[in-house]
């Protein structure tokens, strides 16, 4: 056993696409890093920026928000709203000096189990060298 740093990633997955996509990856027995804590939300547009700040506050090393591809939203336009909001959050987090790699967004459809595993693999690979996220973490 090595004492390699294993990042903890909080993933907000929309119920209709990304969550189903992660499910597909699971039932298809695809392998991907186990660093993700998936949280199913009804829509990527329902992810309040506060959820993201709160995740970092409570010790997440990375946060992923994933929703349906544009045009595929179950609620027609939720992911468009999410796209705008997340862009602002991303800019804000970068502005105060958080590593931009720690907060990402992806479009994963229910059929893209493969893409989901790839997104997670890349995410983990990118934030491993950064080490634990201590900037915004609450001291316990």
């Amino acid at each position: 056993m090595t004492d390699e740093f294993e990042p903890r990633i909080v993933a907000f997955l929309c119920k209709w696409c990304s969550s189903a996509g992660s499910d597909l990856a699971g039932v298809s027995r695809m392998e991907y890093p186990s660093n993700v804590l998936p949280i199913t939300v009804m829509c990527s547009g329902s992810v309040s920026p506060l959820y993201i700040f709160s995740a970092f506050n409570k010790g997440a090393d990375g946060v992923l928000v994933s929703g349906c591809h544009p045009g595929d939203c179950h609620y027609l336009k939720g992911n468009y709203y999410a796209r705008r909001r997340i862009a602002l959050v991303k800019k804000l987090l970068e502005f105060i000096g958080l590593e931009p790699q720690r907060f990402q967004m992806s479009w994963v459809s229910a059929a893209e189990g493969k893409k989901y595993t790839q997104v997670i693999k890349d995410f983990v690979k990118e934030i491993k060298p950064l080490g634990p996220q201590t900037k915004l973490r609450r001291n316990q």
Partner: peptide
């Protein structure tokens, strides 16, 4: 969501929320 104590982490959440 946010603790009342004025520590770094909590202050950041408060000011993030306000900015957003």
């Amino acid at each position: 969501w946010v603790e009342k104590s004025p520590t770094t982490s909590e202050n950041f959440v408060y000011h993030f929320v306000r900015a957003i």
